[in-house]
Each structure stands twice: as C-alpha cells, then as structure tokens.
Design a protein around this nucleic acid. Structure first.
Length: 553
RNA sequence: UGGGUCGUCGCCAAGCGGUAAGGCACGGGGUUUUGAUCUCCGCAUACCAAGGUUCGAAUCCUUGCGACCCAGCCA
C-alpha cells in the first residue's frame, strides 16, 4: 500500500491549490514565484521555499518565476544575483521568467500616482523618528500626521518633485492613507516610497525614490499573473496591506498570499546578517565554506540537489514554528550517497604495516566492486603489496570490549584482500607505535579461512601505490542547537568544526578524481573532492560520516 | 494591556465527527569481507488543559494555559 507510492504527501498548500484548480479559481492556472532579495547567498531555508514554489508549479503544470526583489539597492549586488541563479539552477529548477521588481519601477510609480489621485496616499514631511512616534504602540493607536490631509494637487506635485530629485534623502516619504488607529500596525499609513540617492545595480541612477516591499511585492505578483503568492509566517499580518493595495488599484489579477513556517534547522543559523558576519569576520572561508548552511556551502560539502529536495519534502509544509533535527538532513544525504556514491579506500591517519611473509617485490592487482549492491557501477583495480597503511585507530594494544579490529596476536580481514595476523608492534624511542609486523594467510583471498571465524574487517592502501591527499573533516559549526537564541552567537561557534588532515593516503583509483566527485571511503564516511583539489594535491571534504551503531571504543 | 498565528510520540507530520498514518531518532533480532547498507520487531488507551454537545470528539462549542510574529523611510 505505501510501497512505491510516488505521490508526495499532501500539505495544506497542496490542498488549497488542488481546491482552487477544481473550482477554476484562477482560470485553472498555477503560477508561483521565488522572490529573493539579492542581499546574500541562498541557504537551506530558501531551499524549502524554492522547492515549494517550483514544486507547486511543476506538479500542476504551471509556471514559476525567479524574481529579484531588488527595491533596496543599498544592500543588494550583482554578485548575489548571480549566486542565486547559480544555486537555483544547481538545485535543478528552471524558472519560467527571470524577473526583477526594478523592471516595474515605472508602473509602480504610475500606480502610486493613481493612489494619490484617489486620495489614498499622501506625501509626508515627518522625519523617520517622528513617524515612529506618531505610529503609536502595540496597545495604543497612532496619531495622524499633519500632512495627512494635504491636497491631492499638492501631493501630486510633491511626489513628482520627489522623483525629480528636488529633495534630500529622507525629507519626504509617500504614505498610504489607511488607518492610524488600526490594531494592525502595518495598516497605520505605511510608507510606500522613500527618497534614497543610491546607485541601483540595474536601473543605475534613473531613480532616487525607491518603493517599499509591501507596496512592490503585491503589484509585482499581479503583473506576473501569480496565482499563489507563497511566503513565510512573518508576512501574515502584511496580508491585509497586500490586499488593500491590490483592491485599490487596477491590476491584471489579485494573487492569493499564503503563509507557511520558515525552516529552522538545529545547529545552524539562517539569518543573512549573521551569515554575512561569519564570512566577513573570517569565521569561515566564505559563503561556500562547507560548514555554511548555504546552498553553495552544502554543494561544496558534497550534498546533492536530490538530497536537499528530499529533505525539503520530508520536513513538510505547515504553519507551525518547528525545529528540524540535523539527523533528518544527514539521513537524506546518506541515503542518496549510499545508493549512488562509488566506494573507495582511504586511510586518514596512516600506520605502516609490513606483511613479513609476503614477497618483497610482489604486487597483486586486486579487483574490487565500486559498489557492494550495484554491480552495474563496475569494478576497479586496487594494488596490494608487502607494505601497506591501515588506519591508526584500527589497531589497539588495549582493545575495549567488542573491539573488532586488529590487535596483537589476532587476525583481521583486510577489505577485499587477505586475512592478516599481527605479530609485532614496533615503537620509537617515545614509545609511539610506528609500524606493525604482520603475516598474511594466502588462502584467504576471496574466501574465509577454514575452521576459524574472522570478525573484523579494516580498510587499507598500498604504501607504494596510494596517493597522498588532504582530507578536511567538518563538524557542525555551532556547539548549541539554537545558536540564534544566544546572546552572542559567535561565542558558540564550534572551535573544532574543521580538522585538516594532511598526511592521508587514498587508493590509486582516486588519482584522477575531480571537483565535486563524491565517494564513500569505506568505513569512514562520504567525501567529496573539493574545488581546491588539484592533480598534484588531492583535497577531499567529508560530507557526512557513516551512520555508526557500533560500540567503538 | 492591541492585532495575527500556532499547540497530535524525543524531532517533524498525517488526520477535515466513526474510534491515533508515515518519516527521523531511539531500543532489540537477523544477514553482511564496510561496526555501513539491507531486513524484521518494538516505540502516543493518547491528541496543551478543563468543561460541554454527541451513540461516538484529536476533529464541533466554551473557557483557560503556553509558544511565535508585528511598533524599519529592511525584505
């Protein structure tokens, strides 16, 4: 019944859209949009919105635009616009149209003139500070501005002169005339336009007045024929304003705004301001640092678009503020990589092992499967020789109970090769183990020894044939589940979030691995070739460890 | 003390008056040349609380309680 049921689980927005389709509410069409402000890189929270918006369109044969909400040039840039397009495309979505709120500046202006003509907007000379004071409080109504009853002719004249650049920044503002006593503060004559002499990335210096979000967004939606305008919960009480503007104006349609809860992921931060601070203050290497919850960071860490989309589907869409555990995201990437990543052996902290009864110059080219469950993924050659490396932690002189790896005087299986037995531990003057002497049982290649059971299996690489590599081990960036609730989130940055291992050895087949190739290093985790990697110096990032149910140490 | 929204398992989340889906996490068994994968089993007499309506309530009503959002010329 539930097996292979490919239809995604329902949620309230899917239900609304389905109902609207049935009642022919928007002429049977579904048009959505993803409207980021280009003031930072996209993060995992945006991915939820992207999947919702593009997904809703895809499921209903509709359209979805990528629209830049570029109404505040002070904070926005072309770099961000480019990164946003790159990230959305990498996730695998294609926008129907690439739009910019700034493309609508002229229509927006004309609509504002209409509002003035209808006596629904006025030019106010109050300062920002005064407007704040006049607004009242949550429990007390606001006061009307002395300019509220300025004549339509004067308003028209002043607004035209605002556009013409006759006034200083902040000298005037265009306000909607709604209700200073409204219990909804957004309706207490909200600002529609402000004067700001800032160069805009796209319109250059054509404008010195810029429209506000509330005024711009609804009209932009209407212009594009959006049917369902999906946004996060904090805009819930902006909806009356969204509807007010469209009700007063002649627009192509009146989209329906629907709000859903934004993503909150444990151990991460999604405030653009704080992410920007992490980058600027060098707590991370950049917006695409693998520890960052940005799309670019997840990508560099080795996450796949499919895993991110799967995650967004699993967490659901509701109006409940909720916190998602990291385990869900980790499950999604492990599931994808377990079925799709090729297997390889890599020794992160090498310990030399000499197989004393193995011929000095002999080299065997062992053939190993690239994937234990998927033969169609092919095989690879892994050379075996007298001197190999194993993981330092795969040998113990004082093994804890249930230790399944190598100990003195006992056997262990070398994955894909022979069973070896350790006979001697070589130490340096400081008492540190520098080498192991073992013997191999030549009758154990591809078969179990007779009469005894070898329970442990460890990975290895041949000293002479393996390649050096740098491996970067990442852990969660914060030490507490909700760093945002901290007085200073920088104090809970995890000091051990990055560990760089420079002396690693990876099997020969990895020599030609290139950026973004993903592997499972058997028994240690999933890894991805970093963009810093070169033929001379391989660099891998750990995406996520393998799930560990065992009782190690 | 205004307005808006939300309260179902440790974390998500179905449920839309007919007697609590599913996923993650967790615990236990089996398979395994990855302590992985896979597989089997277990995991809410209970739905914020208290009343009420009903043959029957997580679903309807009432009253409480708790949480989140809003006082940018940010989005």
């Amino acid at each position: 019944m539930q097996k292979n049921d490919i239809s995604p689980p329902s949620h309230f927005i899917r239900q609304i859209v389905a109902n609207d389709l049935q009642s022919h509410k928007h002429h049977g069409k579904v048009v959505t949009r993803f409207p980021p402000e280009p003031n930072g890189y996209l993060h995992i929270g945006h991915a939820k919105s992207i999947c919702l918006n593009f997904g809703t369109a895809l499921e209903n044969n509709g359209a979805c635009n990528l629209r830049f909400d570029d109404t505040n040039p002070e904070k926005e840039s072309i770099e961000y616009m480019e990164s946003i397009q790159r990230d959305v495309a990498w996730l695998g979505f294609e926008w129907t149209q690439l739009c910019h709120a700034s493309d609508y500046f002229e229509v927006l202006y004309q609509h504002a003139v209409t509002l003035i003509e209808k006596g629904l907007a006025y030019v106010d000379s109050l300062s920002a500070e005064e407007i704040r004071l006049y607004r009242g409080t949550l429990t007390q109504p606001g006061k009307e501005s002395p300019d509220r009853n300025r004549s339509i002719a004067d308003n028209l004249d002043l607004f035209a002169r605002m556009r013409a650049g006759e006034f200083a920044d902040g000298q005037y503002v265009l306000r909607a005339k709604i209700d200073m006593a409204s219990p909804n503060i957004n309706l207490r004559d909200p600002a529609l336009y402000r004067i700001r002499r800032v160069h805009h990335q796209r319109t250059g210096d054509a404008w010195c007045i810029y429209p506000m979000y509330d005024y711009t967004h609804c009209i932009s939606d209407a212009i594009e024929g959006i049917t369902h305008s999906l946004c996060t919960l904090e805009f819930e009480d902006h909806r009356p304003l969204y509807d007010w503007v469209l009700d007063k104006l002649q627009t192509p349609c009146h989209p329906q705004q629907i709000e859903f809860a934004r993503l909150q992921l444990e151990y991460t931060i999604v405030s653009k301001r704080k992410l920007n601070q992490l980058v600027t203050e060098k707590h991370v290497s950049g917006w695409d640092d693998p520890r960052m919850p940005t799309i670019a960071g997840l990508r560099r860490a080795g996450f796949t678009p499919q895993a991110i989309k799967d995650f967004c589907e699993r967490i659901g869409i509701t109006k409940q503020n909720s916190w998602i555990e990291m385990g869900v995201l980790e499950y999604c990437i492990r599931e994808d990589l377990n079925t799709n990543a090729l297997r390889a052996m890599a020794v992160l902290e090498p310990l030399r092992v000499v197989i004393t009864n193995y011929p000095d110059e002999k080299v065997e080219e062992l053939t190993l499967s690239n994937h234990p469950q998927r033969e169609e993924l092919g095989k690879r050659i892994v050379p075996f020789s007298k001197t190999i490396f194993i993981e330092r932690e795969d040998f113990s002189e004082n093994p804890p109970p249930k230790y399944k790896r190598l100990v003195l005087g006992a056997e262990v299986r070398l994955r894909g090769a022979y069973v070896i037995c350790c006979h001697e531990v070589i130490k340096n003057a400081a008492g540190e183990i520098i080498e192991l002497h073992c013997t191999y049982d030549e009758n154990t290649l591809g078969k179990n020894p007779e009469g005894r059971k070898v329970k442990g299996v460890i990975h290895w690489v041949s000293q002479a044939h393996s390649c050096p590599a740098e491996v970067r081990l990442y852990e969660r960036l914060f030490t507490v589940a909700q760093p945002d609730n901290e007085e200073n989130f920088l104090e809970v940055v995890n000091p051990h979030s990055l560990q760089i291992l420079k002396e690693c050895r990876v099997e020969a087949s990895l020599r030609a691995a290139t950026s973004e190739n993903r592997y499972q290093f058997e028994r240690t985790g999933y890894f991805c070739v970093d963009s810093d990697s070169t033929v001379e110096k391989l660099v891998f990032n750990r995406t996520v460890t393998l799930r560990d149910n065992g009782e190690k140490d």
